[in-house]
Design a protein around this nucleic acid. Structure first.
Lengths: 201, 201
DNA sequence: CAATCAACATACAGTCTGCATGTAAATGTG
DNA sequence: CACATTTACATGCAGACTGTATGTTGATTG
């Protein structure tokens, strides 16, 4: 293992620099906000110059998009890790919700994904990111539950996004000091209200 | 009626200038976004100089806060106007929801209040504004409904904010082209799920 | 009516973003 | 393996923007 950069392929260099930039930006975007973080700051933290940033990303927004995508992916992975495979639809939803709220408690994550994200990339932009990660699982889960007759039949896209919206707002509320249990209680009630009452034979 | 500014009291001047600035800012913030609107643009549209802006508002954010407050108030008034006084709790909620979604269709309003607002002022900041206007009515309505036994008892603050979150996301979805009916269908289902089934004597 | 204060206008300093240009190393080619 | 080309940056620059400090004029007050 050679410590110094003896001879690096271009692919390696790109990968390393891009990674450093995204990592540095992630740190600053979560510590402060998108608007309060300048590109000089980011490149200083990453140990490169602004030239490198603008070589790899078209602009500051594009770098932010890369960070957001990575964070959304991290959240989705944490949630899927917490949700055991075969579980009742209702239970899976509740476990997943709780896991999501937990995952969003990483400092700065709510601001990055729930405040700055929509403002910087637009709702459609953030939806596109979410659909590539967490929302997909949610939508598929809901579709399955509805087809199984365990849940009221409703427009899938709308149901997915509105449920996701409640999860998001709950995460922000917890961030602001609201009790975790209260948010879970309301989310549980909302989900229960959607389930079709099992008619005992 | 004298057309020219013959002799204006300071209070009148302040009121007029502040109003002009807020109106101009509102137009630009709704046409473009907060970030894409510069203070030189705003003051040009308002017919004053940046000196006037920074005399009346501590910074660009403060001007934005004033605009947001005014817009939130406008939305709340439209909703209250649409909601006839005495109506069943469930019906009042549904009518209010629809009115809210309608009111939010004014071009640029969703971005101003639902995207830029939280990002610029923070969630707590926007909550403070909302609580002074629309959310208050919602919360009081929910409290009443719950006390009347028509709705499941749940933590009031959490329920209010999570329901408001679904309304907000629905407004954004409609803005993005989603069918109004789909959003209403899901909102109706969510509300219905919260109502206690009336036990017929 | 003098003194003060409020409501601006003007000028300036510092910072930021995006781009254009320069350079050295890596890569492709005959 | 020499040479042309492309890649991965670094550096410098232009334009714009924010916030503040300072100046000026008209209203307000004792």
């Amino acid at each position: 293992m050679q410590v110094k950069s003896e001879r690096r392929s271009n692919r390696d260099r790109t990968e390393a620099t891009r990674g450093d930039l995204i990592a540095a930006a992630r740190r600053l975007f979560t510590e402060k906000s998108y608007a309060e973080t300048s590109t000089p700051e980011i490149v200083a933290a990453a140990g490169v110059t602004r030239g490198a940033l603008y070589h790899h990303f078209s602009d500051k927004q594009a770098l932010f998009a890369a960070v957001a995508e990575q964070e959304a992916n991290a959240v989705a992975e944490e949630v899927e890790r917490a949700a055991p495979t075969a579980l009742g639809a209702r239970e899976a939803l509740l476990v997943g919700s709780a896991a999501y709220l937990k995952a969003m408690q990483v400092p700065g994550r709510t601001r990055l994904l729930l405040l700055d994200g929509p403002a910087v990339l637009g709702r459609p932009g953030m939806d596109a990111i979410d659909d590539r990660h967490g929302n997909r699982t949610l939508r598929e889960g809901l579709a399955l539950t509805m087809r199984a007759g365990e849940m009221r039949k409703l427009p899938l896209a709308a149901l997915t996004s509105l449920l996701a919206a409640t999860f998001d707002r709950a995460a922000l509320a917890i961030d602001a000091g609201a009790p975790f249990a209260d948010q879970i209680a309301v989310i549980s009630a909302l989900i229960d209200g959607l389930m079709t009452p099992d008619q005992p034979a």
